[in-house]
Amino acid sequence: MDRQNQFSFQFIFIMLLYLVIVILSVIVISLGKNIYDKINEDRNKNYELQVSLSYIANKIRQSDINDAVEIKDLNGIDAVVINEVYDEEEYQTWIYFYDGAIYEMFTDAGSTFELSDGTRVVEADLFKIEKIKDNLYKFTAVSKEENSELYLSLYSKAVT
C-alpha cells in the first residue's frame, strides 16, 4: 500500500514538473510574441515617420542649387517641386501628399497631371510643409497618431 502511495505521489510530482515546464513554455512564448509584436509595431511606425522625412530631406539636399527647389501649391496642397535638366530638357519632380500617402511625380516641366498619376512612395496620415522664413522650411509627417518634424535650411532659397 505504502509503495503504491509513494508511486502515485512521485507520479503526481512528475506530472506537476511537466505542468511547470508547460506553463513556463507558454509564458516564454507569450512574452516573446508580445515583445516581437511591439518591436515590429515600433519599427513600422518609425519607418513610416522617418522614411517620409528622410526621403524629402535627401531629395531636397541632392538638388539644393539655385532655383532648383520650389514649394508650390498643387490643387490646394503644398508640394515640393524639384527642377532638373537632362539633355537640355527641363523636368520636374513633384512631391506631394495625396490619399494617405506621399506621392512622387516625375514629369516634363509645365505639363499637367492628376494627383493619382504619381508613384506612391510611403504611407502617411498627414504631410505638411510650413515656411518658417526665407530659407527655412518645416516638414511634418503624421503616422498612426504620432508626428515627426524636420527642419530644412535651403542654400538655394526656395521659390514660393
Partner: peptide, 28 residues
Amino acid sequence: IARFTQIRANDKVTAGAIIQSDFEIIKS
C-alpha cells in the same frame, strides 16, 4: 535586450531628427 535595443534605435532616430533640425535652424 531585443526590446531595449529597438527602443534605443528609435531614440537614436528621434534624437537624430531633433539634432539635425536644430543644426538646420542654426545653419539658416
